[in-house]
Design a protein around this nucleic acid. Structure first.
Lengths: 119, 119
DNA sequence: CGGTATCCTCGACGATACTG
DNA sequence: CAGTATCGTCGAGGATACCG
C-alpha cells in the first residue's frame, strides 16, 4: 500500500503522498468482497442478520459476522439487539455510514452504465 | 457474492437482486489492494510505469503489471508504448476511467474527513 | 525501462459443528 | 435466530530471477 511518510521519496511525489491517505483510508476500510454490498443493502432501511445473510446467500455465517463486526468497529453501521426469543438483531447505517451513500449511489450508477444487466 | 438470477429467492428480495448488479460490477472490477490507488494516481495526468511503481513503492513488479493489465482489460486505463531506448510506457485514464473520477474524489474526501491525517 | 516466469506465503473466506 | 469455534482451502499478491 502507498504507505505515508516513508522517507526517500522523490520530491515530486511528496504532495501525492500527503494527499493519498484519504482514498487509502476509504479503500482500506472497505476491502474485501462484501462490505460495499452490505452497505448498499442497508442503504434504504435497517435489516436483520438473516435478511443480510439471505441477500448475500453465498456468504458463510463466519464471514458475515466478521464483516459486520468490522463495519461496526469502523463506525459505519450500528447493531441493535432486541432481547426477544428468538433473538432479533438489526443493522443500520450510522451517521458516518449515511455519508457514504452518495458514493454507493455513484458506484451503482457507474456499474449500471458499464456493466452487463442480468437477464 | 450476491450473485444475480439465482432461483429460490424470497419475493421481497427480487428488486434488490435486480438492482445490486450495478455496485457488484463496480466492486468486482476494482477488487484488490491497488486499483483505486492506481486510478487515483492517474487522475491528474498520465504516468509512466516507473512513476506508478515508485508511488506505490511496496507493490511487486509482478503485481503492478497484473493490476495494470486488468485495469486495461476493463477499459479503465489505456497503455501507450513509446518505441524508444530505453522503452517508455505511459498509462492514462480512458473515457470510462475519467467517468470514475467523481467517485475517487468522493472517496478521497470521505477518507480525509474520517481518517487520520499522517504526520 | 518495463516487463515475464516461477515459486511461495499468507490471510481472507468458506464449511462444518455447536450454542445461548 | 444469531451467533462462536475450528479447521481447511484458495488465490491475490510478494520475492526472485531473467529478458528484449
Amino acid at each position: 500500500m502507498a504507505r505515508i511518510c516513508k522517507g526517500g521519496f522523490e520530491k515530486e511525489f511528496i504532495k501525492e503522498q500527503r494527499d493519498v491517505y484519504g482514498i487509502a483510508y476509504t479503500q482500506n476500510m472497505l476491502s474485501g468482497r462484501w462490505k460495499y454490498l452490505i452497505l448498499w443493502f442497508l442503504k434504504t432501511k435497517e435489516r436483520r442478520y438473516s435478511e443480510i445473510k439471505t441477500f448475500l446467500w453465498d456468504i458463510s455465517q463466519g464471514s458475515l459476522t466478521k464483516q459486520l463486526r468490522e463495519l461496526e468497529t469502523d463506525g459505519l453501521i450500528k447493531r441493535e439487539v432486541f432481547p426477544e426469543v428468538p433473538p432479533r438483531v438489526e443493522y443500520s447505517l450510522t451517521t458516518k455510514g449515511l455519508e457514504f451513500i452518495p458514493i454507493l449511489d455513484m458506484m451503482e450508477n457507474f456499474g449500471k452504465k458499464f456493466g452487463e444487466k442480468p437477464e
